[in-house]
Structures are given as C-alpha cells and as structure tokens.
Amino acid sequence: MDFLLQLVVSGVVTGGIYALIAIGFVVVYKATGVINFATGELMMIGAFFAWTAMTALHAPFVVALAVAAIGAAAVGALVERVVLRPLMGQRAISVIMVTIGLSSIFKGIAQIVWSGEYRSFPQIFPRRPILLGPVLLPSRHAYPFLIALAAIALLALLFRFTRTGVAMRATADDQATAFGMGIDVRRMFSFSWILAATTAALAGIVIGTIGGISPQLGAVGLRIFPVVILGGLDSIGGALVGGVVMGILENLAGGYLDPLLPGGGVKDVVPFAALVLILMVRPYGLFGTRDIERL
C-alpha cells in the first residue's frame, strides 16, 4: 500500500511538471494552430539561461528566474516573428517540420555556447525531505512541484483577469471576430509564443534542479505529447489533468511492470501506448474541441 501511495505521489509530482510544460504547448496550439516540437529545446535554453546567471554571475535564484524568463521571452518572440509568421496557414507538415528544424538549431547552438557536458544546478532548495503521512517526498521533487503549481495558478489568473489574457482567449476562440473587435491578433500570436517560451524555461529550470541539465534535456519535450493528447490539444485544464494522469500512469507502469519485463524502460513507452489508444477512441482528448469538417 505504501509502495502504491509512494508511486502515486511521485507520479503527481512528475505530472505537475508535465502540466507546466504542456500549458505552454497548448497556449501556442490554441492561438496559432502550431504543434510545437521545439518545446523541449525551449526548456533547455531557458534552463541554461538560469544556470549561467547563477554560476557565472552568482545571481540569487529569483534573479536567475527573471533572467531566464526575459531571455526565453525574447527567444520566443524572435522565433514567432522570423520563422513562424511567414508560415501562417501553411500545410500541417510545414508547420511541424519548421518547429523540428528549430529544435535542431537550438540544440546545436546550446552545444556550442554551453558545450555538450552535463551540468548540475547549484543547491537551491533546503535538503530536508518532506513527510506526507507515510510518504517521503525528497525536497528536490517537492519544491519544483510547488513552483510548477504556482506558475500554473499564475497563468490561470492571467488568462482569467488581465486584458491581454482575455484578448488571447478571444483570439483562440475565433480569430476573425477577435480581429473585428479590435484585438491585435498578430500581437496575440507573439504573446502566445512568449508565454510558451517562458513557461517552457520555467519547466526547464524546474527539471534542471531535479536532475541537472545538458543540451540533451530537450528530449523530455516528447513526453508532453501523451499529456496533451489525453487532455485535448486545445484545453488548458486538460493539460493539467493530462499531466497528472500521465505522471501517475508512467510511475505505476514503471513500478509494477518494469520488474516483470526484461530490459525495462516500460516507463518510457507506456504513455505512448496510452496515446495510441486515446487517439483511436477519443482523438480530441478529454476536454479538446471536437472538429467538425464541412466541405
């Protein structure tokens, strides 16, 4: 029982971080219809910004966060303006491949600037683990999870109450009408990429504090596909639910199935098997909008 509980709790923690990454992804998809394969690399770049601020400039963690957020926002805005805007409304394959191309460029640049080595973040959080009843939560998992939760809450408030947030939701809902109501739709595209890059940077830092960073960190980005497909590609609430469910699922699969199968690695494949099932049964996910096609 304790084993199960331990797995579920660490699944929720992983899931919270997945949810944070997935939200940035969903925001971009909602606003611009782009599936962002470069999410993982945006995470990696953002994490390296923070790492540089902390190690080279000896900045405190909060300042490093701000540096990473600003840097990532600039990268996001640049990418949207230079690469994605000319491709607006192009075929699905162009849009997918351009983000894949970007991810390759980011990976190369990161290797040149920060070298391919593996780096660990300086100690940020107190070392003492947190006890939740019978479950022991290492501090390097607990604090990142709290940061992820706080960021998600902040984003929710932003969408709910700020003028820009409302404008972004309107754009996602119906571009033409939003445009007619005087919303600068192009600026909203830009904002959605800025937001995606910033949340990705935060997620990258959070993951970096758990296990260190390297230019290969972006591979984690693939993990969000099961999450967003389960939740629905265009649902922010869905990203949250999907993240937690997938986090728990992969932990349970890892905990119970890994010993049964030779070679292991079940944890990495089960979310994708689930993804295929979801696509067969309910392609638009739990909370996604159902597309109706007309000729």
């Binding site: 690469v83 491709l87 491949m97 970007l102 190369g108 640049i109």
Partner: peptide, 23 residues
Amino acid sequence: TFFHPMRDIVFGAMIVGFLVFEP
C-alpha cells in the same frame, strides 16, 4: 568539437530555410 553542433544547426537551418524560402 564544433562539427557535431554545426551539423545540428545546418540541418535545422536547411529545413527552416527551405520551408520559409522555397517550400
């Protein structure tokens, strides 16, 4: 040491460049 990263960059730039300029 620059060969591997440069290969990644050129590969990505090739995809992005063709999609944007010569689809």
